[in-house]
Amino acid sequence: MIMYALAAVLFGVGLYGLLVKRHLLKKVLGLLILEHAVNLFLVEVGYIEGGTPPIRIEGADAAAFVSNAVDPVPQALVLTSIVIGLGLAMLMVALTLRIYERYGSLDANRMSELKG
């Protein structure tokens, strides 16, 4: 339970960054932290006490492997999510740089007032 709560706290920190920060790059950092929190939670859901990685070594006891290995499905999906997070970060950073070049400011509050 404590591990779930810690993932929730990490989520809260990221949410705080997204809500409160006006500097656009800081907002990007907040979103990255939010993403980390969700990934951490999903991996925690698949974990069992004393679990082994879901890799079956040749010649190992198959029954022991099934009873000890952790859930592979969340891990596979989190792997996808991490790599997509990389693409997301690239796109956000590119947009931030472009916005700064165009408007000379990174203030999210001023962004909403600007037109064109």
Partner: peptide, 25 residues
């Protein structure tokens, strides 16, 4: 948490993200 594949991917992705962010910063 017994997820070596994710640990490796996380390291690689983090290095790339930090490099890009440093350039932006």
């Amino acid at each position: 948490l017994a997820a070596p594949d994710i640990a490796i991917t996380q390291v690689v992705v983090e290095v790339i993200v930090v490099t890009v962010l440093i350039r932006a910063a």
